[in-house]
């Protein structure tokens, strides 16, 4: 019996800020950032939203399309780098909100931007080993960049959830990972904002891990890029995923349906899951998808997926991307609680 995605749900908060609005505050030329990062605007959470509320919305959307009794969910794992509590799981909040408690296991994951796909791998293993019937894996973030830092132009909010089980809509044919200790981006305990190695986040971090994990997956499955209809990579900006794709010989048209970063920014743990959800919204029975996440620190999880059934009744990602309200920088700092009161 194959294991894979039986339902999925995504969510992007309604608020946006444009690159021009941020650049104007710091005396920078917005065109440099728009050209350099290939990002026009990013999503911003509402004042009453955090990684837990985003995770709940994603989980409810995933359940909505399945009709599965949440009491049959045996595991809830939430991956995020912006869990609302340092100690107290986000997973229990999500499990309670979707009525999956109390007979289940739960934990929070952290691995920079790839914690959501790590949660998918664990749910897949638990289902495959018959320890649980269904597992819920969520990647959700309300990421923060230090004011004035390059990260401020992209650090965004959003997420996606995948219900993993048997007899799936989308089979996970194979998954593998490529992981090393690479200090490209980090946030120390008690610190509000992360720090990063600027250009060091590129070659030794993003490109090495994404390309190696993808090649490893192709090797292990005996497939080539030509076997896949869609490809999604982690998208910290609009440039990196297409550049990695070019090196692997992936035509851009296979990547564009899952490339959301130019419209919503980098949603961190939500980024690869949201890109995958956007692809599933338009995928047809028989389509094959390759997905590779990246988390700083550093590692990549790669997935080979195949659509087995017609996907019906999703809450489309497009609906959330198109529903937007722009904020000025003052409103943005209020939303992100950067004003000391």
């Amino acid at each position: 019996m194959s294991v894979g995605i039986v339902g999925y749900g995504a969510y992007v908060p309604r608020y946006r800020i444009k690159v021009e609005e941020i650049a104007a505050i710091w005396g920078k030329n917005p065109e440099d950032y728009k050209k350099g990062l290939k990002v026009a605007e990013k999503s911003v959470p509402g004042v009453d939203e955090d990684a837990a509320t985003i995770a709940v919305q994603c989980a409810r959307n995933a359940l909505d399309m399945t009709g599965i009794d949440p009491q049959n969910i045996g595991a809830v794992y939430v991956g995020s780098e912006s869990h609302p509590y340092a100690v107290k799981p986000t997973g229990t909040i999500v499990a309670e909100a979707i009525n999956a408690t109390p007979e289940l296991t739960s934990a929070d994951y952290e691995f920079a931007c790839k914690a959501g796909t790590a949660a998918m791998q664990v749910c897949m293993a638990l289902v495959k080993s018959d320890m649980i019937e269904y597992g819920l894996a969520v990647g959700a973030d309300t990421s923060q960049g230090r004011p004035g830092d390059a990260l401020e132009y992209t650090a965004a909010a959003g997420g996606a959830a995948f219900l993993i089980g048997k007899d799936p809509l989308v089979e996970i044919e194979h998954t593998c990972s490529f992981t090393t200790d690479t200090p490209d981006f980090w946030r120390r305990e008690g610190q509000e904002y992360p720090r990063h190695g600027a250009r060091f986040t590129g070659e030794p971090a993003y490109f090495r891990h994404v390309i190696s994990a993808t090649k490893l997956l192709l090797d292990k499955t005996g497939t080539s890029i030509n076997d896949y209809d869609f490809v999604v990579f982690h998208q910290p900006n609009g440039k990196f995923p297409l550049k990695a794709g070019k090196r692997l010989g992936i035509p851009p048209e296979k990547m564009l349906p899952g490339l959301l970063v130019n419209k919503i920014g980098n949603t961190y743990s939500g980024a690869t899951p949201l890109g995958l959800a956007a692809i599933l919204d338009q995928a047809e029975k028989g389509d094959r998808i390759l997905a590779t996440s990246f988390g700083s620190g550093a590692g990549s999880d790669s997935f080979a997926l195949k659509v087995l059934k017609k996907i019906e009744n999703p809450h489309p990602v497009k609906k959330y991307i198109e529903n937007k309200k722009y904020l000025n920088y003052g409103e943005y700092v209020k939303h992100r609680r950067k004003i000391k009161m």
Partner: peptide, 15 residues
């Protein structure tokens, strides 16, 4: 599902 209020910076978050 939203955040309703917080017990200051160190208290619990009410959802």
């Amino acid at each position: 599902f939203r955040k309703i209020s917080e017990d200051g910076d160190s208290g619990i978050i009410h959802y």
